[in-house]
Amino acid sequence: MDMATTTQAATAATVVTGAAPLVEMRDIFVAFGGVHAVQDVCVDLRAGEVVGLVGGNGAGKTTLMRALSGAHPADSGEILIDGHPVVIPNPRAAKALGVETIYQTLALAENVDAAANLFLGRELKTRIGSLDDTAMESATRKVIGRLNPNFKNFKTPVVSLSGGQRQAIAISRAIHFNARVLIMDEPTAALGPAETEQVRNVIKQLKSEGIGIFLISHDIHDVFDLADRISVMLHGKLVGTVNKADVTTDEVLGMIIMGKLPNEVTQKELAQLHG
């Protein structure tokens, strides 16, 4: 993965409005054996923007984002942050660049409590270098309280928490460390209505703080509510990226299911979507 060959001209060409995008992923390619999970996908994200990433099951959304979070580096393609090419070989590198991720699988250590998970790999320490569990618990209570005021099980291993409580921990972990880029892979899948509302509010607030968010969701209304732009994937390829303001939910559904852009699709085809 040689990023040094990027020409300045290429960078400048893609920049439309002044400053470089916060994140740019170009020609990303990921294969698992013979399966081309992601092919030639280009997406970008600006500060204070929410980009909805949608597509059917197995479309390649998670795989694309795992390349950005360092969980599974791309086979080829480039990633630019603030216009500078970067290499993200592992999750540590992503975190160092300010990229935080809420994984679809949550990625929690089952046998330790909420605070230990929240600070995993970034523990708070006392002056003598031992773990400061009390300080970590205190911070955890604050940040989780913001998402789910009813969360009380701070001393229990997460294995015995509910799906929503676990999700609250995963979200808290991603937002606690001053991320610049947030990847949310179906963050509300296990949440109740009240908790989902909390997460929406948090997303709106983070957005207003200038954080860029990739939001993967199967809930098209969620995406329309929160996203500024929507990138649609189908069978590992990017169908296209549209401004939310320019499209209807039906048109996005057409992209997801038929892989056709709004100007390619006929009214008849759209009508069939509702069967």
């Binding site: 979070s69 975190k95 699988t105 990625a107 250590a109 330790v112 230990a116 995993l120 773990l131």
Partner: peptide, 20 residues
């Protein structure tokens, strides 16, 4: 932290890697 890493690897090796 070393001990905490040992335990989290045991709890979920994948999560430990993803946590950096």
């Amino acid at each position: 932290p070393f001990g905490r890493y040992v335990f989290s690897i045991g709890g979920n090796p994948e999560a430990a890697i993803l946590a950096g």
